[in-house]
Amino acid sequence: MKDDGSRSRGWSVPAWGVNCALVVLVAGMWPLDWVLVEQMDEYYLRVLILVGLNVILATSLNLINGITGQFSLGHAGFMAIGAYATGSLMKYFSPTGAGAEAALLALLIVGGLVAAVAGLLVGIPTLRLRGDYLAIATLGFGEIIYTLIVTTDRIGPFEIGSSSGLHAIPIRTSFFWAYAGAIVCVASIWRLSYSAKGLAFRAVREDEIAAAAMGIDTTYYKVLAFVIGAFFAGVAGGLYATYDGNLAPESFRFTKSIELVVMVVLGGSGSITGVVVAAAVLTYLPEQLRFFAEWRMVIYSLALILMMLLRPEGLLGGRELLRWRRVAAATTVGGDAVQSGR
């Protein structure tokens, strides 16, 4: 991904080369999957796959919160929609045989699209809100989605399972699918936010009024950020549904959303690589602290507070690894959505 950083440096890797490399990277996950299943402890493989899913979730939230400067506290809601859409369809069709992998891909995309529609519905009304009000409104949307799930037993022929959850979903997702999804998600959001067109997202974050004065349809970009972010969250949800096989509505409440926000914030809002690292570390660490169960979340929340007090710009402070050109963090700038009113 060095092609972006070197734009004005006089040399560059051609795009087709990077595209080929990405395809090879995704394909390489396939044999790696085999090796890991053979060699790795089942518990750690599970943690590794959850890392992949959280990378997708945190990166897609980073597009909304870090790069576009909005503040969503309802990301788990989009994940829930994708999880239930893919999971329920998967259970209904339970594809097997030769077409099973293709069917999984199709259902993951369907789950993402359903979540994207929800993102559109959430994005449009929340446009009039900023900062903390937006945070609360999106939190409310997440809780409304939760309520809808626990009060719905089925939609037509498709089972939702209301408050007892959706169980016995055919398990199809493996390491390969989780990491193929993560690579596609991170690469897409990277390219979106560091391209000429995607600069508009960051312009909206920095100063909406100035962005509009520069001919940028700020409404369009804010909604687009919600739609794309929700799409990938939905895909991650679908991956989770077809990996675990069981969905409990409780696990998509705003505790999950806050967990994702913490990943974005600690990674450094706006820094894609920083958030990827934070998602990985914050998924792995709590697992390691299991023996410490009682104090685990206490430490976690203390770390969050201390981070805000000592280094509010996050781990990477908006910079990117693998990219020498600086990008500022959303929290260090004077965008009107983030700046203190007084």
Binding site: F71, D132, V265, W295, Y300, I305, M308, P312, V338
Partner: peptide
Amino acid sequence: KPRLVVLITAIGVSLLLQNLAQT
């Protein structure tokens, strides 16, 4: 500091108290 930093800190304090109470 920017309002969002304070808001995230507030979320942190909320998590801290919840989890302290659970010990």
